[in-house]
Design a protein around this nucleic acid. Structure first.
Lengths: 211, 211
DNA sequence: TACTGGCTGTGAAATGGTTAACAACGTTAT
DNA sequence: ATAACGTTGTTAACCATTTCACAGCCAGTA
């Protein structure tokens, strides 16, 4: 199979979430048109995405919900699940721990790490917080493959370096700093300050009717 | 001025952040090459972005740091600053309140709203939490123009509707649900669960050497 | 002054992603 | 059985964005 584009993967994740809801509501099959409406995209986009991954529907029936769900999960998920580590158990880190935990059955945040001795040893959302020094050892122990960075900007690069050193192959970075990392480690930057500033800009009255 | 592309705005926000750091370090002027390195983009991308907004540098001197900073801020910021409301003062909402507060001088989260009577009345990061019923009144009182949605998925749509009703022109949505809103209200979706799943997918060993 | 080097500014090409348009097909109704 | 309908699968056109390639310019140098 050729490489699936980044944007398509994002939409597949959205489709899966919507399909899960449809499945529990007892929907057996769904048209590209309906899935598109739910996902806020055009029907042809849905059909193209499913073509991309090689999933076929049938005319007059649409796509089988359960079949499509399993098919997408087969593409997205790591068999056996994914174990993640969170580095930086401050306000944001702890909130994300609670947020992520139990939301996905296939991705589990199994350990948190920090430098603050007040936090080390605590258990947050069923997840123990260790000294950052132990990252390498615990990563091996738990089989951690991805890392979540929620430290202050000044420490983001070294946190990322430590994660790479510990063998992770993907990093979710919440610090507002572009990370410099080996190209074989996949990075997703979630820049919430930038997102807020973006909203502020486009919400300006001018941006709609600029001269 | 013609409309500035979405992606360009995102980069301008990044440039500004990097330039601020350079400015305090005493850097007077900077080449597209250097700014590009800091932002993890190509030099030509920087030059094209600055061309897009009509800012000129000089050969052999590069771009004036302070001048560029002011120029970008003039484009991005609302004169007089932007007031935001946060709806949903749960774990994530409270963490974001602390995170945003004091980070930007031009965007202030001035009020939080929730339905939980245990939370209403509390002050988090210098920001009082009101009953969601008061949203309309407080929005006018404080001059709120953008909203941040951090409620559970099931209530995201109604929270967004309430914000639009209260007159906001932009929404930053953290709930994993595509919002259906008037097209003149600008929405930025920050889907952290999707971001995590995306990392998990691309961190799969297979995704590099798929059959 | 005339020359050189390295930078900016920008038309043009390339790339990546989205949308239009339509052929092929299964289901239903006649 | 077959015609009509509405859907899928897909090619080709389209659009936005990025990148290339190079002209124009400014400072420094002989």
């Amino acid at each position: 199979m050729t490489k699936i584009p980044d944007r398509t993967i994002e939409r597949l994740i959205t489709y899966r979430r919507l399909l899960q809801k449809q499945a529990v509501e007892g929907v057996i099959s769904i048209y590209s048109h309906d899935l598109a409406t739910l996902a806020h995209v055009k029907p042809v986009q849905v059909r193209r995405d499913l073509m991309e991954i090689g999933f076929s529907g049938s005319p007059s029936k649409g796509y089988g919900v359960q079949g499509l769900l399993d098919y997408i999960s087969g593409i997205l998920d790591m068999p056996g699940g994914t174990k993640a580590a969170l580095v930086g158990a401050g306000n944001l880190g702890r909130a994300l721990l609670s947020y992520f935990n139990g939301r996905s059955s296939t991705i589990n945040v199994v350990a948190a790490f920090d430098v603050d001795t007040n936090i080390i040893g605590r258990v947050i959302a069923g997840c123990r917080c260790y000294d950052i020094q132990e990252l390498g050892a615990r990563a091996k122990e738990f089989g951690i493959t991805i890392g979540i960075v929620t430290v202050p900007a000044t420490q983001a690069q070294s946190a990322a370096d430590a994660l790479v050193e510990a063998g992770v192959t993907g990093i979710l970075n919440f610090a507002p700093v572009p990370l410099r990392i080996r190209p074989d480690v996949y990075i997703v930057q979630v820049d919430i300050t930038r997102a807020l500033e973006k909203v502020a800009h486009f919400a300006k009255p001018q941006s709609a009717k600029e001269v």
